[in-house]
């Protein structure tokens, strides 16, 4: 557990000092919102369209961060360090997922207000508590799957090419559930029915892939 905290702390400190991932992700998200504004030619969004724009943007922005997740480990020998240290290898997975969750939350802290400013008329703040819950559950799923796939992709020749095509199909259930849960929250008369069901789906996804990543991660870390 101490190893987990140490690795995650290291990652967050590095990110805090270099500001490599999160600002780029946030900038990407904001720019994508602008692109959507012109692509859809809409000033205001609501309901399923709003949910779709939001989640597609967040997912693509997350990919940027996930792609960078293990770069330092690879370039500066961090993997060897982890392997030589007398710690469980899965602590790397947990730490990386944790760091990624922090990145994603930071991203959403910027992206969600901007999204509301650009596209949502009013009633957004009433939806925020539930939206935060949806986002958090989706973040956990994205982070676990992202950390696992990033550790696979980093060892291949086609690294940053391979990650999105592996990640996107695997995260389709997250997008389905998150967008479906967000849709009623962003509808003009705020509607909270059916949100619970999708939260359950997200939680199930997080649980299954969390356990799965935990089970297979050891095998990704040999040699």
């Amino acid at each position: 557990m101490r190893a987990v905290v140490a690795i995650a702390r290291k990652d967050l400190l590095v990110e805090l000092r270099t500001k490599e991932s999160v600002p780029a992700m946030a900038l990407f998200a904001v720019t994508t919102f602008v692109i959507f504004h012109f692509g859809l030619d809409r000033d205001r969004l609501e309901g399923e369209l709003a949910a779709g724009v939001l989640w597609v943007t967040l997912l693509f922005a997350a990919i940027l961060g996930i792609n960078r997740l293990f770069v330092a480990e690879r370039e500066q020998g961090g993997f060897d360090g982890i392997l030589m240290a007398p710690i469980e290898r899965t602590s790397l997975l947990i730490a990386k997922s944790g760091a990624l969750i922090v990145y994603l939350v930071a991203l959403e802290l910027i992206a969600l207000p901007v999204f509301a400013l650009f596209f949502i008329d009013e009633g957004f703040w009433a939806a925020v508590p539930r939206l935060a819950l949806v986002t958090l559950l989706a973040d956990v799923g994205l982070a676990v799957v992202g950390a696992m796939l990033a550790s696979i992709a980093i060892h291949t020749r086609a690294r940053d090419l391979l990650l999105p095509i592996l990640l996107l199909p695997l995260t389709v259930p997250v997008v389905i559930a998150a967008a479906a849960a967000t849709k009623p929250l962003l509808s003009i008369p705020l509607d909270t029915s059916g949100v619970g069901k999708w939260l359950a789906v997200l939680a199930l996804y997080d649980l299954v892939f969390g356990l799965l990543a935990y089970a297979v991660f050891d095998f990704l870390m040999e040699d």
Partner: peptide, 9 residues
């Protein structure tokens, strides 16, 4: 190994 991990996931 990686292909197997992929297959399981």
């Amino acid at each position: 190994r990686y292909a197997s991990v992929f297959a399981i996931t």
